[in-house]
């Protein structure tokens, strides 16, 4: 199978390329330079919004596209997020239709449901996407997910898979991994929600399952067994600082504005409320079973902390 991976220069993109290139022909597309990919992976350094990107689709006649190139930089402007994420995804989708791509895998996130006080313990795939309600900066990510859903209905000839993994843990530079790598992370005093994390290798495995012919639809992807946040801190061998929730928000907001932290204040809701997903569909339809348990995942995180230092 010939597979295109957009956003291959990211850590997860490279990890996925490393997994898929053994059995498939992989072509990467990214606007960032990418060096550390397997030698047989051809990489095109181009912005997915550029017209020239279509030529890559025309020349390669991909069987499948894994769309990972979604910008989530809290420092980037809202206009940049919208332009890159919504327009970029839309372009990739139209190329898929025009050039006969049979499968599109879109990596969304369980964060699109949003951590909320009245969330039921396990959110199903049909739950409304409320992530933007309290965290307006991720509205474009919710938009990308919804774009994928409308694409699914408009173009049934393309098997579309939307994956919503829980917090991906590993070398990736996302908020949960960055947070758990801290030696003195904040917690909110009096709150200890149960959280779900997934090993980055398991996420790549879920993408591989999603590429199998006949699989389409939306899938929540929970990883290892859920555990209270305090247990994750213990396994991450960090010493959290409990901050009262009434002052934590304004303090973090101030620190973010002063560029002393990379975490925007609404992320604190993840330390307070539940945002857990039901993985029944991923297990039964996708045939996905995570290979790494919580101890494994957190040991991997500790290793990535050492590597970073």
């Amino acid at each position: 199978m010939k597979i295109a991976i957009t956003g291959i220069a990211g850590r997860f993109g490279r990890l996925l390329a490393g997994l898929l290139h053994r059995n498939h022909e992989v072509v990467g597309i990214d606007r960032r330079p990418c060096r550390t990919v397997p030698k047989d992976v051809e990489v095109h350094c181009i912005d997915i919004r550029r017209k020239r990107c279509e030529a890559i689709f025309r020349q390669n006649r991909f069987d499948a596209v894994v769309h990972l190139q979604v910008l989530h930089n809290p420092r980037a402007s809202s206009a940049e997020h919208y332009s890159f994420n919504i327009q970029g995804t839309d372009r990739v989708m139209s190329h898929c239709v025009k050039h006969g791509v049979k499968k599109l895998v879109l990596l969304s996130s369980a964060n699109v449901y949003g951590p909320r006080p009245d969330n039921t313990q396990f959110l199903g795939e049909d739950t409304p996407l409320m992530g933007g309600e309290r965290f307006s900066e991720i509205r474009d990510l919710v938009g990308v997910d919804m774009l994928g859903q409308s694409f699914f209905w408009k173009y049934p000839q393309v098997e579309t898979v939307i994956l919503r993994p829980v917090h991906i843990i590993g070398l990736v530079r996302n908020a949960p991994s960055n947070y758990l790598r801290l030696l003195r992370p904040w917690t909110l005093a009096g709150f200890d929600p149960v959280v779900q994390v997934i090993h980055e290798n398991d996420t790549a495995l879920a993408v591989e399952h999603a590429l199998e012919p006949g699989i389409q639809g939306i899938f929540n992807v929970p990883g290892c067994e859920p555990a209270p946040l305090s247990q994750l801190h213990r396994l991450a061998e960090c010493k959290p600082i409990a901050v009262p929730h009434l002052v934590a928000g304004p303090m973090l907001n101030r620190l973010f504005k002063m560029r002393l932290t990379t975490f925007p204040a609404p992320e604190l809701d993840h330390l307070r409320y539940l945002c857990m997903v039901d993985g029944q569909r991923a297990r039964s339809t996708l045939g996905f079973n995570p290979q790494h348990d919580l101890a494994d995942t957190m040991a991997h995180l500790r290793l990535t902390r050492l590597l970073q230092h």
């Binding site: 009245d118 009096g190 929730h245 539940l274």
Partner: peptide
């Protein structure tokens, strides 16, 4: 009740 998860300490105690 639906407002319990918003309460510090009580939410953890109940859970």
């Amino acid at each position: 009740e639906r407002w319990v998860p918003s309460l510090p300490y009580a939410s953890v105690f109940f859970a």
